[in-house]
Simulated assay, not measured.
Amino acid sequence: MFTLAAPRHAVALDKPVGQWLTNLRRPGGLGKDPERAAQRAQQLAAIDPDWNPGQLGWTVDWQRHWAGLATLLAGGAGLEEIVPGVTHHGDDIGRWLIRQRRDWVRLNPEQQHRLDEAGVKPAVRHQKAAARTNAKAEATKGSDAFQRGVAALQRYIQREGKTVVGRQHVEDLPDGTSVRLGVFLSNHKNRRDRLTDHQLAALAELGYDWAR
């Protein structure tokens, strides 16, 4: 499976293609002229329809690992063979696969659908206590709130062409809910050390250098 989900440090023919692709994915990265930007987006999509996974709700890192899994499966590997230590272009697909099964509830519906079609199922967990159930529910709730915040940020940045958000700004989402975007951004910046790698990567891809 061909992918443009190159890591930021990737180099090809002595060219920093990883950084180049990262720049293209940022708001305004395809140029200020709307027609030219649309044409460039079509050209990239012709190479890889998922060239900008942030628009789908996940990170470039997730997309690259997913492409690696798809390539291994297409090459004849069975899911039971893809264990920690099995890599594709340096990425440990086996270890990544375990995390997807374990953290299934944190994935969005399209991620779950893609994995399900590949035969991947969520890990079966036996709940031992009510406290553990409550903790899982809180984690899911927090993950959903973060995803809404990222979606609101994407809408704001695409519309305004900037990443600076006023403290009191509220962004309305298509489903009728609202996100206090300024507060969301400030809180997550102040609690950066508590964010997961996935959350930091999502914010960094939107152009927030403090999340790197």
Rank of each mutant, 00 (worst) to 15 (best):
R132Q: 14
A131G: 15
S178K: 15
H126I: 14
D144W: 03
I82V: 06
W96L: 06
I93D: 07
L72T: 02
K141G: 14
T71Q: 12
R114Y: 10
G76M: 02
A118V: 04
T177K: 13
Q154N: 04
W104E: 04
T140M: 10
A139S: 08
L69P: 01
V179R: 00
R132V: 13
E138R: 10
A139L: 08
R99Y: 09
N134T: 15
A46C: 07
Q147E: 09
A131K: 13
E160F: 04
A131S: 15
T71G: 03
E110A: 15
H113E: 12
R167A: 14
R99L: 08
Q127D: 05
G149C: 07
G161W: 11
V170H: 08
W62R: 05
I98C: 09
D175Y: 10
P109S: 11
K128G: 13
L72N: 04
A139K: 07
D144C: 06
A129Y: 03
E110T: 14
G119W: 06
A131D: 10
V105F: 13
Y156R: 07
R167Y: 12
L73T: 00
V83Y: 00
H88V: 12
D116H: 13
R159Q: 15
E80M: 08
A46V: 02
E80D: 15
R102H: 14
A131F: 09
G76P: 07
W62G: 00
G78N: 10
E117D: 09
A118K: 06
A152G: 05
V150A: 08
R132I: 12
A129M: 07
A123L: 14
I93N: 04
H169F: 15
E171A: 02
R95D: 06
F146S: 05
V120N: 07
N108K: 02
Q168G: 05
R148M: 05
